[in-house]
Amino acid sequence: MFDVGLMELALIAFVAIIAFGPDRLPVLAKQAGVMIRKAKAMANSARDELREELGPDYADLQLRDLDPRNIVRRHIIEAMEDPDPGPPTGGAVLLEGQLPPYDVDAT
């Protein structure tokens, strides 16, 4: 998710030890853990409230399903998997060599 490797984590830990000192580092790590737990609880609460308000049709809703990138990706994959629908309905099929009608007012 963040593309942080072992070397980057080691560098971050080294800078944290130098900046904050070994005495304050456990306290800061504990505070960071508490903040992460609170953020996760808030996200779960928002998800549960959204599920409750949308009704039983969306009981399996995940917050990542609301990401616009995932929505577009899912629709593109569905469109690519659909069989060829054939010519569009509602219009006349042109014969070979026949030109489509030209509307002067439309241009």
Rank of each mutant, 00 (worst) to 15 (best):
P85D: 03
M7T: 09
A16E: 01
A41P: 00
G33N: 07
V15A: 04
A106Q: 14
K30R: 13
E81V: 04
P87D: 03
D48H: 00
A39F: 03
A92H: 14
G33L: 07
L50G: 05
R69A: 15
L9F: 03
V4C: 07
G86K: 04
I77M: 11
L54N: 03
F20E: 01
V15S: 00
P26E: 15
E81N: 07
A39L: 10
L50Q: 09
D65L: 04
L99V: 11
E96A: 11
D65F: 07
P22D: 11
G91T: 12
Q98V: 05
R73E: 10
G97Y: 04
F20W: 01
P101V: 01
E8F: 03
K38I: 11
D82Q: 13
D103S: 02
K30C: 14
I71R: 09
I17Y: 11
E8H: 04
A32L: 08
L99T: 06
L11P: 00
G91A: 12
L25N: 01
R24V: 02
A92N: 05
A46R: 13
R74C: 09
P88Y: 04
R73P: 02
F14G: 09
D3T: 10
D103K: 02
G91W: 10
P88H: 00
I77N: 11
P83L: 00
G91K: 15
D57R: 14
Q62V: 06
P100D: 06
A92Y: 05
D84K: 02
I76R: 12
A41E: 15
R47S: 07
T89N: 10
V4I: 14
P83N: 00
L25V: 00
A29V: 12
M7H: 10
P87M: 06
I17F: 10
P68W: 00
R24C: 01
D57S: 07
N44V: 07
R73A: 10
P56A: 07
L9R: 11
E96M: 09
L61I: 00
I76D: 06
T89K: 12
M35R: 15
R69W: 10
I18G: 07
D65P: 01
D23M: 08
A59Q: 04
A13H: 06
D48M: 06
G86N: 05
I12Q: 12
Y58L: 14
F2M: 10
Y102M: 13
L6F: 15
Y102T: 07
I76W: 05
T89H: 08
E8N: 01
T107D: 11
K38S: 14
E52G: 03
P100T: 06
R24L: 07
D57F: 03
E49D: 15
P83H: 02
P83T: 03
Y58H: 15
L11F: 07
G21R: 04
F2Y: 12
P101L: 03
V104W: 14
Q31Y: 13
A10Y: 01
L28D: 04
G5V: 03
V104S: 12
S45N: 10
L61K: 02
R69G: 09
L95K: 13
L28H: 02
G21H: 02
P56N: 04
P22I: 08
Q98W: 05
